[in-house]
């Protein structure tokens, strides 16, 4: 059991985006024989969860989120490097994220990408107005576990359905999980087209990806 004070400090370094104190905390903890994985899961990860929650409530903003992600990456890299080779470093999960063909809205997707990165996922951000074929191609090439698509218009939602069909045609539908989001997109739509999950917003997207990957 790690001292509650250390865990609280770890969490705070993420919420307040303090990279040097976070790195020093990890280095000292590791040299004191503290379990790095426990420090990560009980201290730093609650910190990044808090960041996501505050972002969703409008009390913390995108630059802070990006800085928190940077701190999170630094401590995760340090902890991973300290683990015996059979325990890590392990990749948390790989995702392709794109705004669908015909849709040029990329602000919401930018938030999702930032939050996914902050939570330790490897993200292949394909940008906006992305052909369905390109999404499938990158998913295969990078061997991703999750494909996330955003559609901000009722006229472009249909591309999310097209992706489901394209994944089946490519023979990889059972190898990847799909998650859909965007202003007009709903859980009902996700179920109708056969997507694996629907994300109400970026923070919900994290929760759904965790459920899908169990990580």
């Amino acid at each position: 059991m790690i001292d509650e004070k250390i865990l609280k400090t770890a969490k705070q370094t993420i919420v307040e985006q303090k990279k040097d104190p976070a790195v020093e905390l990890v280095q000292k903890a590791l040299s004191d024989g503290i379990d790095g994985m426990e420090l990560l899961t009980e201290g730093f990860i609650p910190g990044i969860n808090e960041v996501g929650d505050q972002f969703g409530r409008g009390t913390l903003f995108l630059p802070e989120l990006v800085q928190a992600a940077d701190v999170m990456k630094a401590v995760t890299d340090l902890i991973n490097a300290s683990l015996p080779s059979q325990d890590g470093p392990q990749e948390k999960g790989k995702l392709v994220i794109a705004t669908v063909k015909g849709d040029v809205h990329d602000i919401g997707k930018c938030i999702v990408v930032s939050l996914m990165q902050a939570n330790g996922y490897t993200v292949f951000d394909l940008g906006r107005d992305v052909d369905t074929e390109r999404i499938v191609e990158v998913a295969i090439k990078e061997d991703v576990q999750v494909i996330g698509t955003s559609a901000l218009l009722t006229t472009t939602m249909v591309r999310q359905k097209e992706l489901e069909e394209a994944l089946k045609s490519a023979g990889i539908r059972d190898k990847v999980r799909t998650i859909v989001g965007g202003a007009p997109v709903t859980a009902r739509w996700a179920a109708k087209i056969g997507a694996d999950a629907f994300a109400e917003d970026a923070q919900d997207g994290i929760a759904k990806v965790r459920e899908l990957l169990g990580a």
């Binding site: 990006v66 800085q67 602000i107 930018c110 930032s114 990165q117 951000d125």
Partner: peptide, 27 residues
């Protein structure tokens, strides 16, 4: 405002810069 950043406008796209950690440039 989204129409003023690349590729729709002349300015670098903050939605691309921000996830890369280029906060100052995005701002």
């Amino acid at each position: 405002l989204g129409l003023y950043s690349q590729p729709d406008g002349p300015f670098p796209n903050p939605s691309e810069l921000m996830p890369m950690g280029k906060i100052k440039e995005a701002q």
